[in-house]
Write a protein that binds this DNA or RNA. Structure first.
Length: 851
RNA sequence: GCCGGAGUGGCGGAAUUGGCAGACGCGCGGGAUUCAAAAUCCCGUCCUGGCAACAGGGUGAGGGUUCGAGUCCCUCCUCCGGCACCA
């Protein structure tokens, strides 16, 4: 390569400025600086994987970095931190295979990814770096868990309160009293069905079970109830839903959360069981179809099954329930196409008309939703319709659809109608429109004690324990008498013990059960308590990390209240859409809980949220090792530099869109940076270009500069980074054509370029004679008047077709424009003597002559 | 199946939100420079016809509203994402 003195040596420049920023701690955020408005820009922190950084990571990081640098120049006190979501399965699996402590693997991976991240020149305040695996960090994860354990949810006040304030009914025994309290904690234990793989000796996450067998090894997986820690997120369902109003997120992400929470309003209705002193409660959103209920269905796990089943049906029911228990959730849904079920031999009595209807068992009814039982209205529910058709159960129409055609087919039992209509075959309620009927019947049932209004959520309580080693230990002790006790806050952090090997025991007990010294704890009374051996899921650490950044080295508390008041909420949060539901929901839940206790002062943690789109390989396919289309960020930085990498990531297309990588595209933006370089530096000599002079710019250059300043600023504010870059390209192309380049214009250009390509901008800024970094230079301003062209070209249309163009002064009036347009030769020709009916003048756009 | 989002040149993508479709970049063609190449610079590049001026067509398909539609409305097709018996 014929490198001369002055070529754009990005490698040298980037190392130089990264060292400079480090040394000067240029991006240190100052806590509680009242002299400036604050701005908190957050990236979703990554899992430190052995694969290192992926080109998808820097997409979001570059976007937030541009905003962070821009806001600093706009005079904000910016908090822009980074850290590691470092607990997780891969390090543990590596430990099982090789015996290497997960901590060692994790630290190596962090070191490597930190090197890669720093090479991109992001303006993070590295003094605030955190890792969730650090005991100084998980100390406070455990602390929050303890708070959850030590609180209950007050339904009346709709907020969490300390467990000591829980009103306890009179006359309970010690044991009952304890159980009463434990049942109301926000962190509680329950027996819940989990995916148990006997061959692997471990519990698997839903994602690790494919088609009823383990993803690794293909061993059978069964559903088995096990004692698990749960968090009562469902109590916050209403607030998680309501407060979405307060947040500036895309409608689609909000909708994802709304659907996940899945609120539905209806009624619980009581059916008497014929011949027994028992009731069967069902939940329905369509109490208006009660007269059309022709049978009932209970889930196989329903507690009433055993009691109600008729002797003749006992064998069949038992077989069915056992088969259902063996199926995983996935199997159950896979079989959705073909409904199964058995008759119990028992009957229920419909409270509205005393009709006797059969009770069936089917796994299309879920024990975990509503009451685990339904009334089946086959004429107006798709699932019931399918079931009734298969088992030849009666179908009774009780809603008349608005369309006559549909009405006839529903009446004949050929069509299932689930929409709103008018009641028929419903006794005294006939003729009522669906919404009104719902209200009337709910009130009618309530008066008679046969039902009540009810709200149900799809959202379930959060299964919070994992049978793993590499996670936060629970700060919990199990006493010999079966009581559970939280550790004292002063005993935190509870550190993970060292283990010789990390393999699961094979009994369903977590690896921590092997740490015998650690498990047994001698109590003050001499008895021996056992520590909890489950660990927390990876979500735990990521639920609150944005708070630890506020005060990352505080050993007295999780964060300082004054700092929380100053920095919160997060003004901008960028990350992958894969976290649109769970991470954001869990974080919001913890935040609201902390809000209830007064530890945070905002209802919501993340004000503005943006999801970056996925980056595909050059072949348009998802990047993967097996396809061989993975782009290595290190290679791009080596070949083209961090500034080119950053710029390309933003130039590819809209931030939120999915888009394919192109190395040639990287070259394109790289050429743009070289052109920019040559505007200032003479490549031959390496010295300042003789064409750069301290002269005032001509009108055209000045106008273009001001247009660019406006465009780039506006585009950063609206996350249109790709169009901001194209605007800068236009300006650079223009300046490259000039014989003499005004220094002041170059300076402004470098300032607007700086957030995108900070290294080259700093270097050229210095070469233009500035001793100070440009990181805190004020963002250039533009003047409205200078943006406007003095002459405007307008298209002249005749009947919507362009026939000519005219040039008019910017301040020309409509009448003048009209006259000039009508006078054009080609317009006169196109009019062919006809008189215009109407002439539409759109200032600065076009003229349309209608004939 | 249901719910979102998107379909624009050879490619990635622009289009002041109803006003000149294709900015900017890539690629491609031609030229300048060079002993030659790389790099760089200039010109061209939606399609069709024409040497050209120009004419006609054109934003997944079809219809509609409007002086005017990539943009709004209806029907359909394709791709992507989410949910998947939640009563």
């Amino acid at each position: 390569m014929g490198t001369t003195e002055g070529t754009y040596d990005f490698g040298r420049i980037e190392r130089k400025w990264q060292a400079y920023w480090d040394e000067h701690k240029s991006f240190r955020a100052v806590d509680c600086d009242a002299s400036k408005p604050k701005y908190y820009v957050l990236d979703m922190f990554p899992y430190p994987s052995g694969q290192g950084l992926h080109v998808g990571h820097p997409e979001g990081y570059t976007a937030t970095d541009i905003v962070a640098r821009y806001k600093r120049m706009k005079g904000f006190n910016v908090l822009h931190p980074f850290g590691w979501d470092a607990f997780g399965l891969p390090a543990e699996q590596h430990a099982i295979k090789t015996g290497t402590h997960p901590e060692e693997t994790t630290n190596q991976n962090i070191a490597n990814m930190k090197r890669q991240t720093k090479a991109l020149g992001f303006s993070y305040d590295w003094d605030r770096e955190i890792a969730t695996t650090d005991p100084e960090y998980y100390h406070w994860t455990q602390w929050i868990f303890l708070k959850l354990f030590n609180c209950f949810f007050d339904e009346g006040q709709q907020k969490a309160r300390p467990i000591e304030e829980l009103p306890i009914p009179e006359g309970l025994s010690d044991d009952q009293r304890r159980r009463y309290i434990d049942d109301r904690r926000l962190a509680y234990q329950a027996d819940v069905p989990v995916n148990w793989c006997p061959a692997l000796g471990t519990v698997l996450a839903n994602e690790e079970v494919v088609g009823g067998v383990s993803e690794r090894g293909g061993h059978p997986v069964i559903r088995r109830p096990m004692r698990q820690w749960m968090l009562r997120i469902t109590r916050y369902a209403e607030r998680l839903l309501d407060d979405l109003k307060e947040v500036d997120w895309s409608e689609s992400i909000k909708k994802l959360q709304v659907d996940w929470i899945g609120r539905s309003v209806g009624a619980e209705v009581c059916f008497r069981i014929d011949g027994r002193d028992d009731n069967l409660w069902v939940f329905t959103t369509r109490p208006d179809t009660l007269f059309g209920a022709t049978y009932m269905v209970v889930a196989p796990e329903h507690p009433l099954v055993d009691a109600i089943v008729a002797d003749g049906q006992r064998a069949a029911v038992k077989a069915y329930c056992e088969a259902a228990a063996r199926k995983s959730d996935l199997d159950r849904t896979d079989l959705a196409k073909d409904k199964t079920g058995v008759f119990t031999g028992a009957y229920a009595v419909n409270p509205v008309n005393e009709t006797r209807i059969p009770i069936w068992i089917s796994d299309y009814v879920l024990i975990s939703y509503g009451t685990g039982a339904i009334m089946a209205v086959p004429a107006h529910d798709d699932r019931d319709f399918e079931f009734a058709t298969k088992f030849e159960l009666p179908i009774i129409q009780v809603v008349q659809p608005p369309s006559c055609e549909d009405a006839e087919r529903v009446a004949r039992g050929e069509l299932c109608f689930t929409g709103d209509g008018t009641a028929i075959n419903s006794g005294p309620f006939d003729g009522l429109p669906t919404p009104e009927f719902k209200e009337r019947i709910t009130a009618w049932l309530a008066e008679r004690g046969l039902g009540k209004r009810a709200v149900n959520y799809k959202l379930r309580d959060w299964l919070f324990s994992r049978q793993r080693y590499w996670g936060e230990p629970f700060p919990i002790l199990h006493l010999p008498d079966g009581q559970i006790m939280g550790l004292a806050e002063s005993d935190l952090p509870l550190r993970l013990p060292e283990l010789d090997d990390y393999k699961p025991l094979g009994t369903g007990e977590p690896p921590l059960a092997k740490a015998t010294d650690w498990i047994d704890v001698t109590m003050p009374d001499g008895s021996t308590a056992r520590r909890e051996t489950n660990t927390m899921p990876q979500w735990a650490g990521s639920c609150w990390y944005y708070l630890r950044y506020l005060d990352p080295r505080n050993s007295e508390r999780g964060w300082d209240p004054a700092k929380e008041r100053y920095w919160m909420p997060v003004d901008l949060y960028i990350g992958g859409a894969e976290h649109a539901v769970l991470h954001l929901l869990y974080s919001r839940f913890w935040h609201k809980f902390l809000y209830d206790l007064g530890y945070v002062t905002t209802k919501e943690p993340f004000k503005k949220l943006v999801n970056q789109g996925m980056i595909l390989g050059e072949d348009g396919q998802k990047m993967s090792k097996s396809r061989g289309n993975v782009v290595n960020p290190d290679q791009v930085v080596t070949d083209y530099g961090a500034d080119s990498m950053r710029l390309y990531e933003m130039f590819m297309g809209p931030l939120e869109a999915m888009k394919p990588w192109s190395m040639q595209g990287v070259q394109g933006v790289h050429r743009f940076l070289q052109k920019t370089w040559r505007l200032v530096v003479d490549e031959e000599t390496g010295r300042f270009s003789v064409n750069v002079r301290p002269v005032p710019p001509e009108e055209e250059t000045l106008r273009l500069l001001h247009q660019t300043i406006k465009k780039v600023g506006d585009d950063i504010e609206s996350f249109g980074f790709n169009t901001a870059i194209s605007a800068m390209m236009i300006l650079v192309n223009h300046l490259g054509r000039l014989e003499v380049r005004p220094k002041s214009v170059l300076e402004s250009l470098l300032l607007v370029l700086a957030p995108f390509a900070p290294h080259i901008a700093e270097e050229l800024w210095q070469r233009l004679g500035h001793a100070q970094s440009l990181a805190y230079e004020p963002w250039p301003t533009y003047e409205k008047d200078l943006i406007k062209d003095s002459q405007i070209e307008l298209a002249v249309q005749v009947n919507g077709k362009i026939r000519d163009r005219i040039v008019v002064p910017a301040e020309a009036g409509d009448e003048d424009i009209k006259a000039q347009a009508l006078g054009c030769d080609r317009v006169v020709e196109a009019l062919a003597g006809k008189t215009p009916k109407k002439v539409i003048v759109i200032k600065s756009r076009l003229v349309n002559i209608v004939v």
